[in-house]
Simulated scan of single mutants.
Amino acid sequence: MIVENNVPLQPYNSFGIVARAQNLVRIASEADVAELRADPRWRDAPRFVLGGGSNIVLTGDVKPLVLKVEIKGLRLVEETPRAWIVEAGAGEIWHDAVQWMLEHGYPGLENLALIPGTVGGAPVQNIGAYGVELQDRFDSLDAIDLDTGRSFTLDAAQCAFGYRDSVFKHVRSGPNDFGLSGRALITRVRFRLPKPWKAVVGYLDLERKMGETGNFTPSATDVFDWVCAIRRAKLPDWRVLGNAGSFFKNPTVTPEQCADIIARDPKIVHYPMDDGSIKLAAGWLIDACGWKGKSVGNAGVYERQALVLVNRGGLENPVTGGEVMTLAKAIQTSVYERFGIRLEPEPVVV
């Protein structure tokens, strides 16, 4: 185990924000965590777990010890008449893992193609896109309690998945609280991919693809290709234009609240949910407030999708975390003043 000092973090966050880790250690196996805990210099040090850096906004240098998760591995664990159980190391690139499963005959995650980040970050955020959420395909995960060094396994119920939420995003506040933010390092994730496979194509953009192609019985590869094409047309490649993907969660309101908004703004994009609530399109709300294409310093709202904030300064004059959060707060204020709705950011602010 080597602890690196004064490490640039610009390559490790998809926004391309310039920041440094005072100390960083690369975790390639569970043994690396054990070795770290055995070292008296680092056993009780504050820690920050870093995966693909696709869902964070760095507002300055990171003083806690950065644990850069780089655990690899992809394998079929079990096959039953009802599902394939596939395991992936937490350090695997998410899109590459989805593609590997598809190529090896294990479909089910194709709707989540091209989402940036690593496998370990997927359950933290309960990622979702085009009609599928991670919890729909989740089996279990392995993690290490950084306070005790003990390994443990969680199933879906124990992960307490919600909309872009999980137990890993909550801080433990009492003896009966199971919040794992800052305590758990995810090492491996297992997916339950149902058999027989069935295409999930109820999302509007995918329905359009079926109409355009005349293909109304798409294969998993067809859905994968369509999702990739849709995302590339709508969203910027973070390697070209730094961003953290969708910056705000789509808010949910009661039917009464939605009816009140529709009375004032009939064109608002909204979707009924299974629990009776109504989900509103945050991108539409932001666009309606006139933010698409606007900037604060080198932080901007993407021209093609108002839900995405981007780094307009590139590598030469990169955006700062302060500029990103100033823009985000200005957007939140505008949306609240017009619609009475508080937008909640998706990324973790460090």
Rank of each mutant, 00 (worst) to 15 (best):
G149V: 05
V3C: 04
S246H: 07
V18R: 13
I268L: 09
A129M: 14
Y203E: 03
A88V: 00
D287W: 12
P175W: 05
L241D: 02
L24Q: 03
G179M: 13
G105E: 12
W291D: 04
K329E: 15
P218M: 02
I286W: 14
A31F: 12
D145L: 10
G51V: 05
R312M: 11
F247D: 01
D96Q: 10
G214C: 02
R137E: 11
V132E: 10
P218D: 02
V227Y: 00
D225R: 08
H270I: 04
L241E: 03
G214M: 00
V253A: 02
L235M: 11
L315P: 07
D142Q: 11
V124C: 12
N298Q: 14
R150Y: 13
E30L: 00
E70Q: 14
N215F: 00
L307P: 09
G128C: 12
E103G: 13
E207V: 13
E30A: 02
I93N: 12
K294E: 13
F216K: 00
R137H: 14
R304H: 15
A199D: 00
L102I: 11
E207G: 09
G182I: 11
V69Y: 07
A263R: 00
N6Y: 00
R41K: 14
G202H: 06
Y302H: 08
G321H: 04
I127M: 11
R37Y: 01
A38G: 13
F48S: 11
W238T: 01
L307G: 13
D222M: 05
V98F: 01
D145G: 11
T148N: 06
F339V: 01
V86A: 00
L9F: 08
P107V: 12
A90W: 01
L9V: 05
V269I: 10
C258F: 09
V269F: 03
V189D: 00
G300W: 06
D237E: 12
Q10W: 11
Y203K: 01
L109V: 10
D237I: 09
R232W: 01
G283A: 14
I2T: 10
T59C: 15
L285V: 11
A45T: 14
K68D: 08
A233S: 14
N111S: 12
A299I: 11
Y106H: 15
E70M: 15
V200P: 00
D275G: 04
V62C: 05
C159S: 15
G117K: 09
M325K: 08
E35N: 09
R188K: 12
D145K: 11
S334A: 15
A90C: 04
V240H: 13
L134R: 06
L102V: 11
S54C: 10
V77D: 01
Q257P: 02
L180N: 07
